[in-house]
């Protein structure tokens, strides 16, 4: 049986959306699958050397609240910061692995992390903003691999 291959595009850069790609990639690594992740647009936040992931309940109506909070109240100054702090607290309290940990587990499992060159140019990022372990590549780098995979996800 040949090794199964997984390709994941991570396009979101907030704390909540950082979880699905890293959980799936690290687990696929544990299953012995060959995994490559392509980080594009806001997904690039996930491979920054120093993570500073934000979170917002605005435009995110499924965020569970301890009590109903009208949207206008959620947009008041400081409220989003509180929500982000509450989520971080909850992650810690429930003992959910941090994004730093999951990212490290991915690297240990041999998952290849690829940053999108075009987005780096678009947002004037520097190579030094990103982890040493990431590869920088473009659409062709990803597609050449993705064309021959068993699982392909866009997150």
């Amino acid at each position: 049986m040949s090794t199964k291959k997984v390709a994941i595009i991570a396009s979101r850069g907030t704390l909540d959306w950082a979880y699905p790609p890293f959980i799936l990639a690290s687990t696929a690594g544990a299953l012995g699958y060959d995994v490559k992740m392509f980080f594009t647009f806001y997904g690039l936040e996930l491979i920054k050397r120093d993570l500073d992931l934000k979170f917002s309940s605005l435009g995110n109506p499924a965020v569970p609240m301890p009590f109903p909070v009208p949207t206008f109240a959620q947009s008041l100054p400081g409220v989003q910061k509180l929500m982000a702090a509450a989520l971080k607290q909850k992650i810690k309290k429930k003992n959910v692995a941090s994004i730093e940990t999951l990212r490290q587990l991915c690297l240990e499992a041999g998952v290849e992390l690829i940053g999108c060159q075009m987005t780096i140019d678009l947002f004037d990022y520097q190579r030094s903003d990103f982890m040493d372990d990431v590869t920088i590549g473009g659409a062709a780098t990803f597609l050449a691999y993705a064309a021959d995979t068993d699982i392909n996800l866009f997150i």
Binding site: I23, S26, G29, A30, K94, N95, A97, L105, A109
Partner: peptide, 13 residues
């Protein structure tokens, strides 16, 4: 004990 998905699987591996 106390660890959530995906840590139990990864530690097992």
């Amino acid at each position: 004990r106390g660890q959530l998905c995906p840590i139990p699987v990864i530690r097992t591996q």
